[in-house]
Design a protein around this nucleic acid. Sequence first.
DNA 1: GGAGTATGTCGTAAACATACGACATATTAT
DNA 2: ATAATATGTCGTATGTTTACGACATACTCC
Lengths: 124, 124
Amino acid sequence: MFTTYSAMHPKTEAFEPGLQELSLFAKSLAHPARMAIIELLARRKSCYSGDIAQELPLQRSTVAQHLQELKKLGLIKGSIEGQYVNYCLNPDVLRHYTQSLEQWLTQIKLEQSENRIDHNNCWT
Amino acid sequence: MFTTYSAMHPKTEAFEPGLQELSLFAKSLAHPARMAIIELLARRKSCYSGDIAQELPLQRSTVAQHLQELKKLGLIKGSIEGQYVNYCLNPDVLRHYTQSLEQWLTQIKLEQSENRIDHNNCWT
DNA sequence: GGAGTATGTCGTAAACATACGACATATTAT
DNA sequence: ATAATATGTCGTATGTTTACGACATACTCC
């Protein structure tokens, strides 16, 4: 489940699958348009493809491309209603990735505070 | 603070600053090498530049480039120790972005479960 | 059937990311 | 001084992302 890693740069496969998966999720969030789409779908009930495009400062075809990116990980799904397409979040997939990421972030914070040492003379 | 948005695609500026910031953080995590570096720095005490490169399946110059990316947001900092450079996480900055992202993810989950409606006839 | 609308895909230009080797610089050891 | 080591930057090749307009397809309403 959740393992269709394609269109990645050469060396990404050399890393742990867990990190690959997480970084792909991060990639989905790595554009404000896609975060805005997720916000929209979380907030609204009727999320026709056209409505989404109208809410964003992008052309329809560009939005379609961002929707593709989200579909690639399965974060969103859609149902055809006549000539319209109603998009919505895929709760299960979203939960999966969200939990993994939150867990990772928590782990980082934990280990980091344990190993805390003084780093004087640091430049940012 | 935390507002040096540069080197972005044309339309990213058209979105809310909050989303821009978050998506930049997501971008920093959007490569397994950078997540691995963060893991390493969280776990270890001595994180010389060379040690980092040796732990990753990448050439030194490539690792340096990923370190640059993390420096760009201020997620890491380093101190010069003779001929070595000791890298470490920047706890404040990391906490800032982590909290923002976790908050956003929580918000999404909340709103999404409130507005839950049936979506039959969905294709993934 | 034919006009109008909604949607997705294709081609393409520009920008960005990734990965590497080669080079420059600074520090330590001989 | 000279050699060795550590580090960062530059140039560059390749691949990916972003953004758009144009096109093709499918559904609705007359």
